[in-house]
Write a protein that binds this DNA or RNA. Structure first.
Length: 292
DNA sequence: TATACGTGGAT
DNA sequence: TATCCAAGTAT
């Protein structure tokens, strides 16, 4: 079973959300910032931060001129703050090597920090109307169901997943980009992971999963990601202290966030230093990088 | 290919 | 309350 692109595009044109990074006036930079922020982070949390960023840093060189600490503060609690550092580095590269204009070529985009297979193609497609297979978690789920008749996508396989989507893509560039947006929108709003709204689905009639009687997912179990008590949680707490204070802090102020296990806490702090998310200044205090 | 990497809302 | 899950990337 396939997916009819015209049906999808018609549905998208009728029902899509009016997100700011989808407006015609939005620049490639606006699209890139949105794509990085949206990695593993819901639209509702991204939108207000995206607005602030585009207002404050309307072009890559503007972001590049800010310090890493400023950028991390502005990132707030979006999560995975290494994304903010990579976007900052990408902005510097774009400013210096690409005339302050986000590249439209997939391979050029892939060479930038924080931009992988998904983001490079999303920017090429959504900012520049290029024809490229844009494969995110939504698209993988929609294809798994509508095309393969499975309850959900199995483990990601970049080559296979992109080939799957490539086979569905309209030949026309602009329509291919629109179709990709439609596929993602369907996965985000209708063909959702938990309770799919099949009654509202534009491709209900041709969906292989429907025809097969909506079998449950039978692939390998997905690793459940824990958070409470992990290094990720401890790192988050440490960083939260530094985001909240304009001045550098002594180690004692960091120690209080995880008194249970000093060894592990110190290793987390060390890993933050290694990642460049935290800096130790000359007098021994700790701070966000680049501000002191 | 498997794993680490933040955060918070929904169920 | 516990678990799931959200437009992934780097290693």
């Amino acid at each position: 079973m396939s997916i009819d692109s015209e049906t999808m595009i018609d549905w998208f044109d009728r029902t899509h959300r009016d997100l700011p990074w989808r407006r015609p006036a939005c620049t490639g930079w606006g699209v890139l910032v949105s794509e990085i922020m949206l990695q593993q982070t819901p639209v509702a949390r991204v939108q207000p931060i995206w607005e602030e960023w585009l207002e404050r840093w309307p072009v890559p060189s503007a972001l590049a001129a800010a310090s890493q600490g400023e950028v991390l503060r502005a990132w707030g609690k979006l999560g995975y703050p290494r994304r903010a550092l990579r976007l900052h580095a990408a902005a510097a590269a774009i400013a210096e090597q690409h005339g302050d204009v986000v590249p439209s070529n997939v391979d050029t985009l892939l060479a930038l920090p924080g931009i992988g297979a998904y983001t490079a193609r999303a920017v090429a497609a959504f900012a520049y109307g290029k024809r490229a297979p844009v494969v995110d978690t939504n698209v993988r789920r929609v294809v798994a169901r509508a095309v393969h008749g499975a309850g959900d996508a199995g483990p990601a396989s970049n080559t296979r997943d992109m080939a799957d989507v490539e086979a569905l893509l309209p030949v026309d560039e602009a329509r291919a980009a629109r179709f990709s947006a439609a596929l993602m929108e369907l996965g985000a709003l209708v063909c959702t992971a938990r309770s799919p709204r099949c009654a509202d689905c534009p491709i209900y009639d041709t969906c292989a999963w429907q025809r097969a009687g909506r079998p449950a997912y039978d692939g390998p179990a997905k690793p459940t990601q824990k958070f409470a008590g992990t290094d990720r949680q401890i790192r988050g707490k440490l960083l939260d202290v530094l985001r909240d204070t304009p001045e550098p802090v002594w180690k004692a102020s960091l120690d209080v966030v995880w008194p249970q296990d000093a060894g592990r806490r110190d290793r987390c702090l060390a890993s933050l230093l290694t990642d460049g998310l935290v800096e130790q200044i000359a007098d021994g205090r700790f701070a966000l990088p680049g501000e002191h």
